[in-house]
Design a protein around this nucleic acid. Structure first.
Lengths: 215, 215
DNA sequence: CCCCGACGAATTTGATCATATTCTGAAATC
DNA sequence: GATTTCAGAATATGATCAAATTCGTCGGGG
């Protein structure tokens, strides 16, 4: 019984499993998510499933339709605009803090993650791209050492994850520009302003892609 | 049985009850929150209580201590800094949108709320102050018509609610300056820049008060 | 005669509770 | 002071109840 989650409670495991499914595009926008379906699929009782779903709906990662049905959210243009505003307001600040606090080991890890990201793009591996792209930003946020801001940003990523997957599924891994090289350079130079500017550009490019892909 | 929540599910009622307790200072920072205590206090089963607690911990309104104990969060200086950064980044943008979208009826409601707020201050009614102050900002956010940004900001308020209550409890309702008059004037003039600036000042004043009160 | 729409029954799904199990923290003893 | 035991609280399950959707059928209209 210890091969599974190494001591973590079941509701935590269910939460992480679902979060990854949302972030990395295993759930489609509009798709219904049922409690009983998950209990069978994940082989756990309904209480842990309910708790995980509450956490995700509270974060906006799932949509609670007025009746009692839960679906993966479908983003409209207004929602994408709001997410863009929030990301532009928050993520450059995290990049700024990361530039002030990063050390050589952290930059090396980020560089390695970015290299794996390039590999996924070269292979045409959409899921690999999503995983490593998220990992890059998560590592950067960890360096920034701002847990509350990081939480907020993670919640934003959960909201657009499924839609990002749809866009990537349409275009493949071609035309996926990012500013990671510029971010890495700015971190290496400890240039907080440059890091913030590069992150802002990265965010705007990514969100533009979602807007155009769903249009 | 229908006098209670008029059709709303129990977990939703428990959530709202707890959220109000947190926002309006009926829970102290550091205070433990137990499931079984709430089941007796609110006369509901433990499943709805668990779900409400999951939602609140996911939002950062409650702290999940690594073991399985839940407490009302205690803010340190770093947390207050982060909350200030996030509020300054988001709330002025909501004020800006509100200035562009508000109508006479909305401004009238805001003015009435602000008048009740002044009344609470004059009476020395700390809870009334907290309720009406939150109401003022909630109404303004509703006018802005940006549900995602509003959700983010509501989550921030949940994080500092208990600590704000502590500060107000120390100082009473004296020395509670706000920029609501300036905000109302800016909305009336449809001046988005002025509204954003006034909101920024309001946020910074409020967070400074928390910092100094907890020092 | 065929097709569309509305009404109703059955199945699926969600909500709640009571109970068993496990883990944590603390007290008491050696 | 360290170890063991005990109490209490949280986790997880399954059962039960209520609500909603869906599918099938019946009636009316084209």
């Amino acid at each position: 019984m210890q091969a599974e989650g190494s001591g973590l409670p079941a509701h935590e495991l269910v939460y992480r499993r679902l979060r990854d499914k949302i972030l990395f595009g295993e759930l489609e926008p509009g798709q219904p998510v049922t409690i009983q379906g998950l209990t069978e699929q994940l082989q756990v009782g309904m209480t842990p499933v309910r708790e995980a779903l509450r956490r995700l709906t509270a974060a906006g990662a799932l949509d609670f339709q007025g009746n009692r049905r839960i679906i993966v959210p479908v983003l409209d243009a207004a929602a994408i605009d709001e997410l863009t505003i929030a990301r532009v307001a928050l993520e450059p600040q995290l990049a700024r803090r990361a530039a002030q606090r990063c050390d050589a080991a952290g930059i090396a890890r980020l560089g390695a993650t970015d290299a794996r990201l390039d590999g996924a793009i070269a292979r045409g591996d959409v899921r690999g791209y999503l995983v490593e792209n998220h990992q890059f930003h998560a590592e950067l946020n960890a360096i920034a050492g701002a847990p509350i801001l990081t939480d907020l940003v993670e919640g934003l990523w959960l909201r657009f994850g499924p839609s990002l997957r749809v866009v990537c599924g349409q275009f493949g891994t071609r035309n996926l520009p990012d500013q990671h090289k510029a971010i890495l350079a700015a971190l290496g130079a400890r240039d907080a302003d440059a890091a913030a500017a590069a992150m802002r550009a990265d965010v705007e490019q990514g969100m533009t892609q979602i807007t155009e892909g769903l249009a």
